[in-house]
Computed example of a mutant assay.
Amino acid sequence: MRNFVITTDSNSDLPIEYIKEKSIGIIPHYYNLGGITYGDEVNLTPKEFYDRMRAGLMPTTMASNPQVIRQTFQNYINLDLDILHISFSSGLSGGCSNVMAGARDICEENPDAKIIVIDTLNASLGEGIFVIKAVEMKEEGKTIDEIASWLEEHKMNFSTFFTVNDLYHLQRGGRISKTTALIGSIMNMKPILYINEEGGLVPLTTIRGRKKSLSTIFNYMIDNMGRYKDDNDIICIAHGDAPDDAMYLKRLIKEALPHKKILINTISPSIGSHSGPGAIGLCFMGEKR
């Protein structure tokens, strides 16, 4: 049985320290800001990216590059490693289909190779938790097939709730109408969204006021955990350059669930281009999406 590597994409929003420590392979998603394409060797810091958005620059995004995918996979195959790739939602990007096509081509050219692609139907640290669980199981001695089977079986137990601070970016991405965005902004309404069973980001409700919207996604998390409340060993908070709000959520979680590990990281520019500065996501394991 060959050894294997776990790979994912930059939209999983995992901390760079974790990626390096666990030797996770990363396939980049791209964004263009001010006429410059970022995502490969050249990148902005999260602070630089969100500050430029606040100054009025509007980024565009691009999915993963098929040539980069093929080269990344081939490099691991050349080392006699199989690959478990954990992908950004096919419901939000064409990147997953690019990865599946690349994996299929590489396996046709290398009959002894095995590449398993998991479509998480999730995003940000909701995707990242898949990676964390896969790494834990690999370190316990589980095989690539055992890990892939577990992830597929529990796919709908990885939950992600979001709220955003500025409705304009949702309107620009076609999630809400221009009229809804205008009225909502005037009334200080904050949408609550979640990633559904098809992997799409869909509105759930609207709440007036920022702090109340944060408390609402926390309450949704508690309600959705169900029987996973005790088994949920990690809860993730993703934020669009809003560290104070992330710490507020962390305090709420620690008061209710003092023994849980909490991971906080910034939302990657490829996702943040659509959610904007101030977006906050809660990612965890629950009984349902």
Results as ranks from 00 to 15, higher is better:
261 K>L: 12
229 K>R: 15
30 Y>N: 04
281 G>T: 08
175 R>C: 04
226 G>L: 05
130 F>D: 02
92 L>S: 05
91 G>M: 01
191 P>A: 06
146 E>F: 12
229 K>L: 13
100 M>E: 15
178 K>I: 10
96 C>E: 03
275 S>T: 15
186 I>R: 02
269 P>K: 02
277 P>R: 02
194 Y>Q: 05
232 N>G: 01
66 P>Y: 14
73 F>D: 01
232 N>S: 09
212 K>S: 12
36 I>A: 05
50 Y>G: 04
218 F>Q: 00
186 I>T: 11
197 E>D: 15
229 K>M: 13
125 L>S: 06
267 I>V: 14
72 T>L: 07
72 T>C: 07
214 L>C: 10
36 I>Q: 14
119 D>K: 07
64 S>Q: 12
53 M>F: 08
45 T>A: 08
283 C>H: 13
219 N>E: 15
95 G>R: 01
40 D>V: 04
151 L>Q: 01
268 S>N: 13
276 G>E: 02
158 F>C: 01
109 E>Y: 11
155 K>M: 12
24 I>S: 08
30 Y>H: 10
240 G>W: 00
172 R>H: 02
15 P>C: 07
95 G>L: 05
127 E>Q: 13
287 E>G: 08
78 N>F: 11
96 C>Y: 03
10 S>A: 12
160 T>V: 11
46 P>G: 11
177 S>M: 07
11 N>I: 05
175 R>T: 05
9 D>T: 07
63 A>E: 08
208 R>W: 11
108 E>I: 11
11 N>V: 09
195 I>A: 03
206 T>W: 14
96 C>V: 03
120 T>L: 10
63 A>M: 14
112 D>C: 07
174 G>T: 15
220 Y>D: 06
53 M>G: 08
63 A>V: 05
74 Q>P: 10
10 S>C: 12
60 T>F: 07
277 P>A: 03
69 I>G: 00
213 S>I: 01
185 S>E: 08
62 M>N: 14
137 M>K: 14
142 K>T: 05
54 R>A: 07
224 N>L: 12
194 Y>V: 00
143 T>Y: 11
234 I>W: 09
65 N>M: 02
254 K>T: 14
44 L>I: 08
50 Y>I: 01
92 L>R: 05
91 G>V: 06
264 I>K: 06
153 E>Q: 14
52 R>I: 06
160 T>G: 01
199 G>R: 00
100 M>L: 13
228 Y>V: 00
203 P>E: 10
138 K>H: 10
161 F>G: 00
157 N>P: 06
106 I>P: 00
125 L>V: 07
103 A>D: 02
243 P>N: 04
30 Y>C: 02
102 G>T: 05
201 L>C: 15
218 F>N: 01
94 G>N: 13
263 L>A: 01
101 A>R: 14
223 D>L: 06
97 S>R: 13
16 I>Q: 15
22 K>A: 02
53 M>P: 10
211 K>H: 05
214 L>S: 03
273 S>V: 01
147 I>R: 03
108 E>H: 13
